[in-house]
Amino acid sequence: MNALNKAKEPFKFYTQVSIPELTGLKAANIQELLDLIKTVPGSVIYHHTHRFLQQHQYLSPEPPNDFAYWITGILGEEELGEALYSIDTIQYTTIRELRDEIIRTIENCIVQHPRSLHKFATPGEEFHFVKSVSFIFQTPYTASDLEEFQAVLQRVTINSIYFHMFESRLRIGRGTNDFSNWLEDSLSEKKLANKIASLDPYTHTMENLRITLIKLIEKRIVKSMEKPSEAELAFPKP
């Protein structure tokens, strides 16, 4: 069935803005970095693995975490840097799991390349641990069907898209992104919901992600306008 449904519950768009809070903690080599990664609050791990998404609206996506950037750029440990860059963040549903993977990756590298322990950042180039303090609030926008949803997606800030795609999934711990949840639960758009859930949003810029979402929805809307095929008319789905 191609027709579009009205939602049982409208989607309320929230948004998120954050301010960095300094922890005063810093590391000058890999061991110090590792020790602090193990003990800092989850908000610190979240900051260093997500801040680039909102802060770096480059024309191409930026390397996806500060630990990797520092280890590669400052300590010159490219192999470990690459291993950290390539952590598939989307597969983790809690900060705890993500933190454990970062720890495992660094520990493995130290075992394989113990010389990496002898590299120090010069004064002024240490890694400073910062945490994100997030403020979440409702925007005036709601959507009750796919067309409204697509229109609002064009209008809201990237902060709003960020909140529903990243923060609610990982930091608030909802498991999947809010858009997919609503599309499936309130609009019975399971296929579209799955398509969005299976994106790797970490390899998009936020504007690019917005366009990708809009295109997926547009495609579904166009499909709903198509005439049903003869087979569909002959054998309508229950």
Binding site: V17, S134, F135
Partner: peptide, 29 residues
């Protein structure tokens, strides 16, 4: 545009003021 314009500074100042009333890391306004 994203990080160093006056509008971002305004946002940060307002969040800073709000932080004075919210000790937590995730704040629902």
């Amino acid at each position: 545009r994203q990080n160093f314009l006056l509008t971002r500074h305004l946002k940060d100042y307002m969040l800073l003021f709000l932080c004075m009333y919210h000790p937590e890391d995730v704040v629902y306004l």
